[in-house]
């Protein structure tokens, strides 16, 4: 009974935390990019615009719900839900803190032995929501957008999957908790021995979440919003939230697999002074770092063209990921022999 209660409480806390995080990620994006572009970003709602995400959310909820008459209604309604659901489902397996974290209750909802595989699998299902949404709209711009997203996400998924094979080989486990523990045992975070995989993973992660410079499925200057052109009100918000939740997911996986999750940096030097800081703070800081890089990239780079994007995925990232996997396996094999 107590076990059930703990799980429910954890689910509620994590869900609330992530929802709020997603909302305030939009605020962060507007502020960070705003300051990079010599303007202020939101300033009116609340102190320095702090209540802006809440006002935006409220606005989207009370907007008129438009379903195009020519659309496939069931699919049109279902598609954003699929996208949203799978973006949030992933957080079940992400360790925010170690097994002793969260005051002894364990800093994650569940630790399964195929955790990372499960996360990648579920994250891929989210693509179905995008495809369905573009198709069900029965309109040309969304159709082009969803076709682009199919090609893009499928091809980057491959390189991404191969990139995270490297750390998995080093850890010898697919469990997210075990991967972090392996980094603790090894004394060095996996981004050092797996720097190639780390870079490939992050590039693919940006492409996976449809963010600049790979934001082709929703390129507003070409496709007027891509797959969600016909969506408005809260259905649009679901897509929007899913995209930002996916950004946090990719960052969280990167932080866990490559940057040691809840571990503190340089434990031998900083350990005596900073041990009072709970693990989830370190985790949050690492996730924040990746999110900042996301926003930084968006403010800096133009957008790739579709064929160039595919060429990078298949001709550069995929061979590199395979090479990295082979080299890693041979080294591990050699060390074991």
């Amino acid at each position: 009974m107590e076990f059930l209660l703990v799980v429910v409480v954890k689910i509620v806390i994590i869900l609330a935390f992530i929802s709020l995080g997603v909302a305030y990620l939009t605020y962060l994006e507007r502020k960070v990019i705003g300051h990079m572009q010599v303007r202020l970003g939101p300033m009116r709602v609340g102190w320095h615009g702090l209540l802006q995400p809440i006002a935006d959310g409220l606005k989207l909820v009370i907007k008129e719900d438009i379903i195009p008459t020519q659309s496939d209604k069931l699919m049109f309604i279902l598609a954003p839900v699929i996208c949203f659901l799978h973006a949030f489902l992933v957080y079940t397996f992400i360790p925010f803190d170690g097994p002793k974290g969260f005051w002894g209750y364990g800093g994650y909802i569940s630790d399964v032995n195929v955790g990372l595989l499960f996360i990648v699998a579920i994250a891929s299902v989210g693509v179905v929501g995008i495809i369905l949404g573009g198709w069900a709209s029965n309109s040309k711009y969304p159709l082009l957008g969803s076709l682009r997203s199919v090609a893009q996400l499928v091809s980057y998924e491959v390189a991404m999957g191969l990139a995270i094979m490297g750390p998995i080989l080093l850890a010898g486990s697919l469990s997210m908790v075990d991967i972090v523990k392996a980094q603790e045992k090894m004394g060095v975070w996996f981004f050092v021995p797996q720097i190639v995989a780390f870079i490939i993973y992050f590039i693919c992660g940006v492409a996976e979440t449809n963010r600049a410079p790979f934001d082709l499925p929703e390129a507003e200057s070409e496709l007027v919003g891509g797959y969600h052109t016909e969506y408005s009100g809260f259905r649009f918000a679901l897509y929007f939230l899913a995209e930002y939740a996916n950004m946090i997911t990719v960052s969280a996986i990167a932080a866990t697999v490559f940057l040691g999750g809840w571990l503190m940096p340089f434990p031998s030097i900083l350990g005596p002074y900073l041990s009072f800081i709970p693990g989830f703070v370190w985790f949050a800081l690492k996730v924040f770092f990746f999110l900042f890089v996301y926003l930084w990239i968006r403010a800096t780079f133009p957008r790739y063209r579709f064929d160039q994007l595919m060429a990078i995925g298949w001709k550069i990232l995929l061979p590199l990921a395979i090479a990295n996997l082979l080299v890693t396996s041979f080294i591990i094999l050699y060390l074991k022999m």
């Binding site: 572009q37 010599v38 303007r39 200057s221 780079f301 133009p302």
Partner: peptide, 16 residues
């Protein structure tokens, strides 16, 4: 032109 190609920051710099 830069905004069409996706470079958002140049847009605001030019307007400045």
């Amino acid at each position: 032109h830069a905004l069409d190609i996706g470079a958002m920051t140049v847009f605001l710099y030019c307007f400045r």
